[in-house]
């Protein structure tokens, strides 16, 4: 009975929403704000990737909130899972190919991760995407050698300093008499690697924080799993 009502409810909801959504003008959005941002972004922020301008400039405080959410999730997971590192290496080690493949991939992943972070204001990608790749670089060896440990102290130092430097860059603008998180030092070099003022710095902070956060979360989960 419960199943039937649940199904009917979800189906009904879906159809009702579909009926309403089909009235929307698909493919020709109003773009009130989006259009204005497209027109103004290259001059105001100096980034060719307009999504980056939105993520770090126009909606910068959203990004700060999002970093805080990741931090809150990692801290909560740490609280829940605790700090016990007792039973190590109960899982079998990976084979030759896995171990050495993982080791070889590490520098490559690191390079591409930082490349994506540093080009976030020019091409698709940026701090979040690059950060995830960095996290993968550190997590991959853990999959190959379940006994290995990530240095949690190091990770929390990186994530703390990355997060606080994001805020410090914002506060620097405030102390210069501008608004919090206002882009500064915007050079007239659209499309160059060194351009867009403080945005690449912000993205570097985001990338490091996301990388440290995810690597910490994953290794926490992996360790706990090997305890069960």
């Amino acid at each position: 009975m419960r199943n039937l009502t649940g199904l009917l409810f979800a189906g009904g909801l879906g159809f009702m929403l579909l009926a309403i959504a089909s009235g929307l003008d698909f493919g020709a959005p109003p773009m009130l704000v989006g259009g204005a941002i497209q027109a103004a972004a290259p001059q105001e922020t100096g980034a060719t990737n307009i999504v980056t301008s939105v993520v770090l400039g126009y909606r910068g405080i959203d990004t700060l909130g999002e970093l805080s959410i990741l931090f809150a999730a990692a801290a909560s997971a740490g609280l829940v899972l605790g700090r016990r590192h007792t039973t190590a290496g109960t899982l079998t080690e990976g084979g030759f190919v896995l171990k050495h493949g993982g080791a070889m991939l590490f520098p490559l992943l690191l390079t591409i991760g930082f490349y994506i972070i540093f080009h976030g204001h020019l091409t698709p990608g940026g701090g979040f995407q690059g950060g995830v790749i960095l996290a993968a670089a550190f997590f991959l060896p853990l999959l190959a050698r379940p006994g290995a440990r990530l240095h949690h102290g190091m990770l929390s130092v990186i994530e703390g300093f990355a997060g606080s430097s994001f805020i410090l860059i914002g506060l620097a603008a405030l102390s210069e008499g501008e608004a919090f998180l206002q882009p500064m030092l915007v050079q007239d070099a659209l499309g160059q690697l060194v351009s867009a003022g403080t945005l690449p710095l912000l993205y570097l902070a985001v990338g490091l924080k996301v990388g440290a956060e995810l690597a910490g979360l994953l290794s926490h989960l992996a360790q706990t799993e090997s305890e069960v």
């Binding site: 909606r59 405080i61 999002e66 805080s68 959410i69 809150a72 999730a73 909560s76």
Partner: peptide, 29 residues
Amino acid sequence: TGLALSGDLFNLYVFYELVAVATFGLIAA
């Protein structure tokens, strides 16, 4: 504080989620 002050719908959503995640952690702890 963000929920009290923000004047943007999606920004409110972000802070709302942050409240939620911090709350989960505090409850579980």
